[in-house]
Design a protein around this nucleic acid. Sequence first.
DNA 1: CGCTATGATTTGTCTAGTTGTATAGTAGTT
DNA 2: AACTACTATACAACTAGACAAATCATAGCG
Lengths: 238, 238
Amino acid sequence: MSQTPIWKTIALALTADIAEGRFATGDRLPTEAQLAATHGVNRHTVRRALAELARQGLVHPRRGAGVFVSAAATDYPIGKRVRYHQNISASGKIPGKRVLSLITRAADKTEAEALNLAPGDPVHVYDGLSLADGQPIAVFQSVFPAARLPDLPEALAENGSVTRALRRCGVADYTRISTRLTARAADAVQARHLHLIEGAPVLHSVGINADPQGHPVEYGKTVFAGERVTLTLDDDHG
Amino acid sequence: MSQTPIWKTIALALTADIAEGRFATGDRLPTEAQLAATHGVNRHTVRRALAELARQGLVHPRRGAGVFVSAAATDYPIGKRVRYHQNISASGKIPGKRVLSLITRAADKTEAEALNLAPGDPVHVYDGLSLADGQPIAVFQSVFPAARLPDLPEALAENGSVTRALRRCGVADYTRISTRLTARAADAVQARHLHLIEGAPVLHSVGINADPQGHPVEYGKTVFAGERVTLTLDDDHG
DNA sequence: CGCTATGATTTGTCTAGTTGTATAGTAGTT
DNA sequence: AACTACTATACAACTAGACAAATCATAGCG
């Protein structure tokens, strides 16, 4: 569905390379074959892009020798779109939260396995929305073992913070024992909550948190809006 | 009585062909014209069937080349010190890398800042493709300071492994000092390399690796195919 | 030292085949 | 009348492969 031909994209990329100093005046560009490989296209497509640059006078090819930069680009369109960037640590502490629903029900097989329970055991399920500057950042679902944390719903309802709610229920500290990340396309529900169009890229995070004794206390899934979120993995180790 | 459309029948037939191994991953399907002839329909009818398979991620078309069978999902764990080869082999896949291009050029502003250099300083740029069982998992670009690692290109060209190449150039060990992750839509170049359709969700990772003294030795960007890669963040401590 | 021969590399050109897109038309159904 | 499914045709964009022509590095030789 790319309405702009590939060769134009490549021509723009090369123009940017020259404009930003990655190739200076007089430098030889990579060979057509190399450019074709890096851009994943046929050599002829690269040739068409180079022909455009040559037409503009940016480069001049020499048969048998290579393609050389003749002048720096004076004007090239800057394709950088303005994006909102929200840095979030992998542990998942996020400023604002909105409770979407808070129910207690039976655990399914996946949840039971993650929390070290038997299928059918009661779990608290907390569906919510993470916000920053009024913008929706992520939708999440946290699943807690109800038997171990009977009073969690009330604690959660008060301030929404998982950390504080857990602390009030006797879990002073907890650590992430695994996190799995992948990129997906937003489904209709996620798109509506995150103010995205359906199919927009979202960052899926599935993780398990455990108390210091190693017992799982939370099984959480988070779906971040790819357009607005950059996950920063910080290495605070010992 | 609404009969099932012809294109759905064709799509189902092709799906069965793939599922039962008559077309393996990476194989090229018969051309649209051939399929149209064998099914006795117009090319556009075949195209609609193929579009459905592409939407499902079963196949990916390449203009001018043909329609190819895509790969299935894999699992790609990363930890702080864990390296690429060990990981994939741990999950039962055979890892590999393919060099797309390997050039030395001037650093732009961003690269210079990341590697603690001055803009215009020479850098080695390694564009490559990460593979598992021969199927593309990610495209990456690694940028190295050329002054500090003059012999890196030859070392890289031999086996493609960044870790071993760095070791041969005197960098025995290195650690990630920052990683940023986000979800994006695949652009045309990424889609072609990763055998995806344009707009499919991909996982962007930008990171800096430094030697034990804290000097940056690599500025790397990686784009994972969201459909078939899950990053697993292990606990570090190791 | 200077010159040439040779082979590898790189750009230029050509032919053929395949997918992507646009437009227009037909038959059947609602 | 409007919609859906399909047909028909034409062209654009890209791939694939082969070969020619210019360049460059190097080895050999006078």
